[in-house]
Design a protein around this nucleic acid. Structure first.
Lengths: 186, 186
DNA sequence: ACCTGAACACCGTTCAAGT
DNA sequence: ACCTGAACACCGTTCAAGT
């Protein structure tokens, strides 16, 4: 290393997360290792632990970074607005299909995930769903959206034609789900 | 090792997979390593490669072992029969929530996964869905079922109360999905 | 064909020490 | 507080050799 002990490298959590995003986009989740991250940042592996607790937290941060990109629809009425939001979440998540499953296994969700969940539940209630049903429907929709994103083929081979087909399937399922949810409106 | 070169340990793919299942049930997917597997089988790590190509294939085999346990409902009419099958798949998959996401990332599904998918599509078509819609609905249902299983809390802490709540949520979502799918019947 | 022995190229994480 | 240096306890996988 060019640096002697005590010299700063100017790292922070944001820098580490941005480097992790580059690794993710070039080689998928498996390419994200603390050591490769350190290499890319010009630092020794353990230096990262001054800014991020462990590798799991890197994936957590990455996921919230991805969800931060989702722009909730400004207007729209009832379930149509929810449908549009789900579509936007799916579009963002499916850019990293192998990262998406990580959302399932996390017990503590990030701020942006919580924000999108709360928004969804609020809009569902606003559309006329009873409070308990709104919470259930929100969780069901999230499960479907995350699952559909995870089901997209991993980065390696992006064969043509499957893109349109998977979009049609996702949207068909989303419509079916919302049609069923609509029957809960009194 | 007690064995000298050339002596057999009596391994085969089935034995390895059963040992992997034990590791899975005691410590989750992360506990499944080629070296721990070898330890448990009284063999050196590389001996496993005589029976299974790599670690990914172990998870593949494990998943198909789990899906082999699913007993398709013998009788029932139309969508109700599909609903029952989905419920059974979910019950089996959610026993290993951290293994379930692996079904998403696999490009080549195992024989039992294919069998269940084919059965589902057949029954959907039998209920009156057009062929292309039946295939779509099958994929949508699988995405939801696998996602719902993966969303179950990991093994470590099984706190009481969440079990019933998650079952209710899963079944509500399944009903909504099938209600939507039913509208496709001409 | 099925195993041992040995090695390669990695991992995540911790601890002590320097500034 | 933020980094280096060094180490610990792991990984998956490959290759050569023995029977």
């Amino acid at each position: 290393m060019n640096r002697t002990p005590g010299q700063r490298a100017g790292l922070d959590a944001g820098t580490v997360l941005r480097a992790a995003l580059e690794l993710l986009e070039s080689g998928g989740v498996d390419a994200i290792s603390m050591r490769r991250l350190a290499d890319r940042l010009g630092v020794l592996p353990n230096a990262i632990y001054s800014h991020i607790p462990d590798r799991m937290s890197v994936l957590d941060g990455l996921l919230d970074l991805v969800l931060a990109q989702v722009r909730p629809p400004a207007r729209g009425d009832g379930l149509a607005r929810v449908e549009l939001l789900m579509r936007r979440i799916w579009l963002e998540l499916k850019r990293h299909p192998d990262l998406a499953p990580h959302l399932f296994s996390r017990q503590q969700l990030g701020p942006h995930a919580l924000r999108l969940g709360h928004l969804t539940a609020t809009w569902l209630a606003g559309a006329g769903l009873p409070a308990d049903r709104a919470g259930q429907a929100m969780r069901v929709l999230m499960i479907y959206v995350i699952g559909a994103a995870a089901a997209e083929l991993p980065p390696p081979a992006s064969r043509p034609g499957t893109g349109r087909a998977s979009t049609a399937t996702f949207e068909a399922g989303l419509r079916w789900l919302l049609a069923g949810i609509a029957t809960e409106i009194s």
